[in-house]
Each structure stands twice: as C-alpha cells, then as structure tokens.
C-alpha cells in the first residue's frame, strides 16, 4: 500500500489533488482512497488530505500517520505544521518551492529519504495565469508514486478535467499544460539519486 499525505492551505486545492490522484490510480485498477481532513473551512488555514493506493481492498478508515510520501503544497507550512511527522525513513517529500535546492534540503535536515522540489507556483502562473499549485504537484506525485505511465495519466486527467470543468472548458488546456510541464519538472534536492 502507498500512503500519501498532502499539506496545504485552504483554497490551494490539496483536497482536489488527492481526489484526482485517486481517480488516476482507480483507472489503473488499484483500490483507492482519497479524503480530506476537515477543520474549520477557511481560505489559508492549514488543511490535510490523504491518499491510500493498494492492489487489495482498503478497509482502514483512519487518517494516515506514517506516510510513504508527504506533499507540501505551501512551504510556509514547514515549521507551522509537523509536515514530516511519522514519514517513513525511506519515504519521500515533495515541496512546492522556488528556492534553491540547498535551501529546501536544509528545511529537512537529517531526513534520509528523497526530497523533491518543484516550482509549482511558477508552472501554474505560466500555464493557468494564476497560482493553483495543486495541478503541477499532482503530476509530480503521480510520477513519483509509480502507479501510472505518463500518457495514461494525461489521458485520465483530461477526462477528469473535462468533467470537473464542464462549466468552464477553457481552463482544461491550461491545466493539461501544467501537468505536462510538471511531469518531469521536479528536482531531487538532496543528492544525485533519481527514482
């Protein structure tokens, strides 16, 4: 089972990204869970969303405490929220950041797993005209999770976007461009390994 925990702020689309990742994994035949942890719903408040992906039916219905991957949608949460809490030693961290690799790596001193950074805000602003970092991050997470191939992922997401944005189809292309650009857009910041 792969367990993923998303840390974002209300309005950044962490929940939507988790649900779309569940969609993608479902299309590959996996059993999936995608769920948010709800507190007071406010723009900017820290929120958490979760994914479980497995090849067997999933019965557990608790939050995720020992994730395989943590996604930091908003790097200002580092320090404010224990984003690393329970992360498996060989796990992965994906951070939305425009900072230099060394600076991102410093934030997670002592972590032995892989840390990836992607400037999701920049990709989003260029492709969508606004800062919605969840779409590029979704692409990075889908690739790193290893559950789905590039072309199949884009195909599934196009279908999902056409449904989700039925009332504003003009945003589908921008979202697809953000996914394509981000697929290989993350940089390993703590070493020269690659997956």
């Amino acid at each position: 089972m792969i367990e993923i925990r998303w840390h974002g702020r209300g309005g950044q689309g962490a929940k939507t990204a988790a649900l779309l990742l569940a969609d993608a994994a479902f299309e590959t035949g996996l059993y999936v869970q995608g769920f948010p942890e709800y507190g007071p719903e406010r723009m900017g408040a820290p929120i958490t969303a979760y994914n479980r992906l497995d090849d067997a039916p999933i019965r557990v219905h608790s939050n995720i405490y020992e994730p395989d991957m943590v996604v930091v949608v908003d790097e200002t949460l580092i320090g404010a929220v224990d984003v690393r809490g329970g992360l498996k030693p060989a796990g992965r961290i994906v951070v939305n950041s425009s900072r230099a690799a060394a600076r991102v790596s410093e934030e997670f001193a002592g972590f032995e797993g892989e840390i990836y950074a992607v400037d999701a805000a920049d990709i989003s602003i260029r492709c969508l005209g606004k800062n919605l970092p969840n779409t590029p991050l979704l692409s990075v997470v889908a690739r790193l999770s290893g559950i789905i191939g590039e072309q199949e992922f884009f195909k599934v997401m196009e279908g999902a976007f056409l449904e989700k944005f039925a009332a504003k189809p003009e945003v589908v292309e921008g979202n697809m461009n953000a996914l394509r650009e981000a697929w290989n857009g993350a940089v390993l910041v703590n070493g020269d390994r690659d997956e």
């Binding site: 569940a22 479902f26 059993y31 999936v32 869970q33 995608g34 769920f35 709800y38 999933i58 219905h61």
Partner: peptide, 12 residues
C-alpha cells in the same frame, strides 16, 4: 453513514 470519513472519501 459516517460523516466525512465515508460521506466525503473517494473509494472503490
């Protein structure tokens, strides 16, 4: 059904 845990979680 349980609120959020079931009502808002995507499952197979």
């Amino acid at each position: 059904q349980d609120g959020f845990i079931t009502s808002h979680a995507i499952e197979n």
